[in-house]
Nucleic acid binder design. Structure first.
Lengths: 243, 243, 243, 243
DNA sequence: GATGAATGAGTATTCATTCAT
DNA sequence: GATGAATGAATACTCATTCAT
């Protein structure tokens, strides 16, 4: 079977794809749903934070977020006790999405296709979001949420991997914990070249997929050309983690 | 030939391996070597900076460095005009070492072994140094130095890759620019799990090496066990990029 | 006509005399006026800065200004992006006032009286403000503003001088650029003796006015007694440019 | 009689002109003269300090002085207990020179010529030396020395002024304390335009001399053209009191 | 509830002065 | 005696968080 990265072969609308936390009652913390305008502000803040943190990472200030949302900082602090809480709220849904993708991949009747689809979906999310990479890799904020996601993810990924191995589609020594590490590695490629070639991670996912096979008569055809030397330079110049 | 990561098959003492800038005359900037006590302090500062930046990244303050070195901040500033200069001094030798490893790998009569050895050496350096990863990936400081290293590295890596391809040892669609990206990916694995399993990158280098082959009858044996779930948790807890 | 320094002979309320920037809308930078409390603090900061810079010169720190204003430094930085901006905001109106005085003097039907009045007004402003002297003479900050003021001032002063010369009231070899230099000289007298005899510059302006006449049958009567030897000592003791 | 600023009409070699403190015994402070090389270093330091402080004012650092002198800072501190002491040592001779000029002017048989000559000599010294202006006007350092010079100067200047007044050469209301103030005013002109037109003060001295006369039938011819508008701009741009 | 103003601890850097070599 | 290395308090500016309007 093909290991083309883009195609899940199917399928149902992807879980949680691109949406924001919809559950309005969760926010107030006292069981009462928020007033309508409050809820609207909460959404604007989350949307602004998503943009800002995605673009500039978690170094972005809450003033930046507030400005982008068109509200005052005070409003941000009214909705979220501190920066960490905002970050958590923001990435919780993305983490949930990741879990959803895993479950969705496991639901695929084709073990290999399901795994490939999951890896691609997860990489899409991670590659597109600098803030998410930071909380996943550096645990800057939101450790508990990340931990919860990990806990929920593990059995699903374990099943997915084992099923593919039992089907002889994946090398026997792949372990479930390799999966997040592979995602982080793809995230690193995206981090580096994201401004210049946002899809470059597909090239490396394809490469790694080749390696995941138990054996291989010939190499697959890598999608996405490699970075040109010029693009390397631009990528380097576009780096901005911090001061 | 085996693609075991650890063994270069040979070899000469690796260039610049793990040492600090030894050349005392380079520092004074006026051709005269530093006084003995000054040189000692310069070394202490570089060593402290290496530790601090490796542990906490380039966010660490020069006060931290000074405290660790057991000197006043003023002393740091006496030796290095500003933070960037210290960072550059610190990483210049590491970058030089990377170039040296590339040349060394190219000198290996066995194209594949040379490439493998180089990838492993480079990954060793990068994996062991958070600060270096930051300047390579985020261009926080020292862009010019990094750029120079890139310029010197490119032809060597190109030759190394092409030679291996012509020998039929490496898949034809690998490009020289893939090499640094692969290193950055390994660096990401190290970033994540560095506190817990500093050598984990070897596992993923082995995996990728499998993928670099034009074809293979069976998967290699991966060195380094995957992270256990417990280690994942610890890895996550050890992250500390910034606030 | 008498060349007594104090009397302009008339006249309309002097432009901008001694006040602080009154226009509250100018500050926010987005067209909206500042909140009442913010505006109050802005005024307090400007007032504090005026005092502090006048007393101690532009060496004074923004912490000093903040302390004097009874606010935190952060508040100062909220209102003014940096020290230069504060200094500029503070002195822009004074520079405008100087231009206004020139225009006003030119409007006087009596060429000599108008010139004398202008010289006195300008000296009053300059003598009363150490910070202003510093930006005028040392271009420490706000070069552009000073330059703009100079550009606007020059034609007016040129007209004023030429008119007085054509009326035979001023020696023919006086040049417009002599005027600012004369003001700076008076400022130096004020700098020296400002704590002890703030009006001493009037004595030297009267002296110089005598010299500006094309011819003179007898010396005018100098206003302001000279410094007594004791006052010299006190003046010297009150100097505090920097450390 | 002419009041041309440049000519003293005579005369003996000016006292203290441009020399450095010659007295070698004064330095050691214990009655013993310095060793020859020590004395040589002292001289080099004083010479370097003279240059540096004259060019950049008293803001210049002792490291600057040491570098210019070609010695280490430690040597500076060995010869002078602190910055103030160096500044004092440096300007003591200049202050002495000023007193000497006064005495010399008084010795001139022509009361007016002597006064004019003195004013010009003093202005030459003051205009050429930013550091001296700073200690005279701002009392940054060396108050006691300045005070002593003032004490010695006063009777001489008083005599010089009174003699000229009794000869009917100077207006009756000029007071001895006006003399230093006039010098400071000329110093201000030099401060402003010193980089562009170091001699501009002569123009204003000539102007003031006109005013010092009891009466005059016509204005004198001013030496030194006024600043051109372009020169004004340059003068402004060359200002550098401090940060 | 919303706003944005206020706060102040924290960071990079400078320089007069002291002290080990 | 000379050297220049070491020190650390001081200064301009940032940003997460609190609070008055």
């Amino acid at each position: 079977m093909s290991s083309t990265v883009t195609g899940p072969g199917s399928r149902q609308p992807a879980p949680g794809a691109g949406s924001l936390p919809a559950d309005p009652g969760a926010a107030a913390g006292n069981g009462r749903p928020l007033r309508r305008d409050a809820e609207r502000n909460r959404q604007r803040i989350l949307r602004a934070a998503a943009e800002v943190f995605t673009e500039r990472g978690l170094q972005a200030t809450l003033d930046d977020v507030a400005r982008r949302a068109g509200v005052g900082v005070g409003t941000v602090y009214r909705r979220f006790p501190d920066k960490e809480a905002l970050v958590e709220a923001l990435f919780t849904e993305r983490l949930d999405a990741l879990v959803g993708y895993a479950e969705h991949g496991l639901a695929d009747p084709d073990p290999w296709a399901g795994l490939v689809w999951f890896l691609g979906q997860a990489a899409t999310v991670i590659a597109g979001d600098r803030g998410l990479r930071q909380i996943l890799m550096f645990a800057t904020y939101g450790r508990d949420r990340v931990d919860q996601a990990r806990v929920r993810m593990l059995p699903v990924v374990t099943a997915m991997v084992q099923r593919a191995q039992q089907a002889g589609e994946v090398r026997a020594d792949l372990r479930p914990t390799d999966v997040p590490l592979i995602e982080f590695m793809l995230g690193a490629a995206a981090e580096y070249a994201g401004q210049v070639r946002p899809e470059i991670w597909r090239r490396y996912l394809a490469l790694i997929l080749d390696a995941l096979r138990p054996a291989r008569a010939a190499a697959s055809v890598l999608p996405e050309p490699a970075l040109s030397p010029d693009e390397m330079v631009q990528a380097m110049r576009s780096g901005t983690l911090s001061r």
